[in-house]
Amino acid sequence: MFDDRSPIYRQIADQIKGDVLRGVLAADDQVMSTNQYAAYYRINPATAAKAFQHLVDEGVLYKRRGVGMFVHAGAQQRLLRQRRERFFTEVLEPMAAEARALGIPVADIVARLHQLIPGDSR
């Protein structure tokens, strides 16, 4: 469900992007209509519409007039690229700062990463 600390339309958009990223929503899959979405999540239909418009503007969804909204064919790849770029600034940099503050050697971190992500020893 949505919290009250950031715009609901953005939370909806992030949720749908997450589904596209993980392949839960595949290329050319239809997404719920604005009204279905509003009813299901108990939110104002204009808020749901804003989220969908946002996703159309970002090229995640496309509209078929009178039919509904569908997942854009290239959306998953584009989202993956964006997330990979953000991974280093949003995930790795804070982790590195924390590791340095705690005095954890880089070698330990690398060793643990190899355990967590086996089969990638380049």
Binding site: N35, A38, A39, R42, I43, N44, P45
Partner: peptide
């Protein structure tokens, strides 16, 4: 109250 909210949205649409 939840029923109220559901019906409000449903009927408003």
């Amino acid at each position: 109250r939840q029923l109220f909210h559901d019906e409000l949205l449903r009927d408003y649409v």
